[in-house]
């Protein structure tokens, strides 16, 4: 096969991989502060995409729809924290696992009831006519995915490093008790992490919707792959999820090219199993040392 076709396929897979990376980054945000993740994160992606679609249908322009969708995602994140996570954390129970799954199922059936089971196209002013860049065709839509993903991750990382609130976020990740002794409320920090994680999931939904269309099941495959990316990269490194996301996105497209489209989901699962067997802390994760 022609090399340029292969490169083309890897490149467009990599753009999709950036979306996996973004959702995986959402897992990292809440894991850092509370050692919990929202197993219903995929439904959060989907519900935010539906909400943004509704905003668009009501006549909201793109520049207004995006922050509206992000805000909605952040509110959903806060709801998940309040309803499923906080109580479990206070009682030091693992109940959050089941509770976040249940909330996800609830979100799924709500979406079916409100918007129906059909897939809807997601209108966007960004063109999908390819531009020729050094031998590869790239669409402005794909560029918007890259800009959106790297932009929001960059902003959040900047917030963590440059503001005192961001440093407090890091302090809670490092040692909750000691952070409390500095006057930093760990409850509020966990809330903040869930709001950010929700906004990140919403952006993933908005970015991916014009490519995949919007429907109740739009994120079910996406979330599994995001989970693989998070585990393979490790739950600490933002840089790691981008690298692994790009890699998995490209690999997936190669698998469906050479083995048939039914094998598309295989590399994600394979990488997940390999990572769990060989490097449970992830490629970019530090081996956790339990201090006594």
């Amino acid at each position: 096969m022609d090399t340029s076709v292969i490169i083309q396929i890897v490149v467009s897979g990599a753009f999709m991989g950036l979306v996996y990376a973004l959702v995986a980054y959402g897992f990292q945000l809440t894991f850092a502060t509370s050692k919990t993740i929202n197993f219903g994160q995929g439904e959060l992606v989907m519900l935010s995409a539906f909400f943004s679609l509704t905003l668009t249908r009501l006549g909201a322009p793109y520049w207004l729809m995006v922050p509206g969708g992000l805000l909605f995602g952040a509110l959903l994140g806060l709801f998940v924290e309040r309803a499923a996570v906080r109580l479990a954390l206070e009682q030091k129970s693992e109940g959050w696992i089941l509770l976040t799954i249940i909330l996800g199922l609830l979100g799924f059936s709500s979406a079916e009831n409100i918007w129906g089971r059909d897939d809807h196209p997601f209108p966007t002013p960004i063109s999908s006519d390819p531009i020729h860049v050094v031998g590869v065709d790239i669409t402005p839509l794909e560029i918007s995915v890259a800009v959106g993903v790297l932009g929001i991750m960059g902003l959040i990382e900047l917030f963590k490093r440059r503001t005192l609130l961001g440093k407090a976020f890091e302090a809670v990740s490092a040692d909750r008790d000691a952070a409390e002794l500095m006057g930093i409320s760990s409850t509020r920090t966990v809330m903040l992490s869930y709001a950010l994680s929700g906004a990140v999931a919403a952006l993933a939904g908005i970015l991916v919707a014009p490519i995949t269309t919007v429907g109740p099941t739009m994120a079910s495959a996406l979330i599994l792959k995001a989970f693989s990316v998070a585990v393979v990269a490790g739950l600490e490194s933002g840089f790691g999820v981008v690298v692994v996301g790009l890699f998995l996105g490209g690999l997936e497209n190669l698998a469906s090219l050479y083995l048939g489209s039914g094998w598309r989901e295989a590399p994600g699962l394979l990488l997940l199993i390999l990572a769990l067997a060989l490097r449970p802390n992830g490629i970019f994760g530090k081996a956790s040392i339990r201090k006594v």
Binding site: T163, K167, A168, E170, A178, L181, M182, I184
Partner: peptide, 30 residues
């Protein structure tokens, strides 16, 4: 606290700044 409990992954100065969290602005200018 007992056992010191410094924030290991953060720099010395960041640890000190966080000590003053209760009376510093939380975004910029801290």
């Amino acid at each position: 606290p007992e056992g010191r409990k410094v924030f290991g992954p953060l720099s010395v100065e960041d640890n000190l700044l966080l000590g003053a969290y209760r009376h510093l602005p939380h975004f910029l200018g801290f």
